[in-house]
């Protein structure tokens, strides 16, 4: 196992959020972290990305890897248009012609090709989030971290982006960690599902999502029941 967090604990002053969490993340697979609101899922993701330091414990394998991250908010640069927001993270990593081609292809894949030269202030919240997701997808990373990426998207755009994510998973091998509170999203996209307990969080359950491979509707319902039961307890 290449990527893992080991005995991670984190407190914010007196409030203990993460309590001795250990998770293995299979290489080139998508692991979904589910849990109640405020249980520290985003904190864990930020620790993995190196944005936050844990109080104790180790993050193994992530440090020297290239990581892309979809935050809950879009974090686009306001004075750069869509094209420049995307090319900004690619400069020096690809040659100019490849950057242009990649931007055009990716924008087309989520139906945003007409907005290439728009500034973030002229885009809707959902459009901005789609660009932020594209920025993470287009960046040549080996690890993709996503913190509730589809939260601000309407049903149609969510479907488009999720389908694109599935295609991307087939086209490019990446280790993905997805944080969400949406059970359907987790079942639809992940190979492995981790359920965290409420604060101070620890790992409540780890399950392999066989639905993602066999697409059996009965299996999906069974997994969903199992997860919901676990989340309710």
């Amino acid at each position: 196992m290449k990527y893992r967090v080991l005995n991670i604990s984190k407190s914010y002053e007196e409030l203990k959020v993460l309590d001795n969490i250990s998770i293995d993340f299979p290489k080139d697979k998508t692991t979904c972290i589910l849990g109640p609101s405020g249980c520290g899922k985003s904190t864990l993701l930020n620790i993995i990305a190196g944005i936050l330091d844990p109080d104790s414990g180790d993050v193994v394998g992530f440090k020297d890897e290239s990581i892309s991250f979809v935050f809950q908010e879009d974090r686009l640069i306001p004075w750069k248009n869509v094209r420049d927001n995307l090319s900004f993270v690619l400069e020096g990593k690809m040659d100019k012609r490849d950057i242009e081609r990649a931007i055009d292809d990716y924008l087309k894949s989520v139906n945003l090709q007409d907005y290439k030269y728009y500034y973030p202030s002229n885009l809707s919240g959902g459009m901005k989030q789609r660009i932020s997701i594209l920025r993470a997808f287009i960046y040549p990373s080996s690890i993709l971290l996503m913190d509730e990426p589809f939260k601000s998207l309407d049903i149609n755009n969510k479907h488009t982006v999720m389908e694109f994510f599935k295609k991307l998973k087939v086209m490019e091998k990446r280790t993905c960690i997805l944080v969400t509170h949406d059970v359907d999203e987790a079942i639809e996209l992940s190979d492995r599902i981790i359920i965290l307990s409420d604060k101070p969080s620890n790992v409540k359950m780890v399950m392999d999502n066989y639905y993602v491979h066999n697409k059996n509707k009965e299996d999906k319902a069974h997994i969903k029941n199992q997860i919901e039961r676990e989340l309710m307890e």
Binding site: G50, I51, I67, S68, R75, I77, F88, V89, G92, Y139
Partner: peptide
């Protein structure tokens, strides 16, 4: 938050100065 993005995406120092 923009600086965090730059750090994560390993944006070059020269690009950071020029573009941010």
């Amino acid at each position: 938050k923009i600086l965090e993005i730059c750090k994560l995406y390993k944006v070059r120092r020269i690009t950071l100065i020029k573009d941010i």
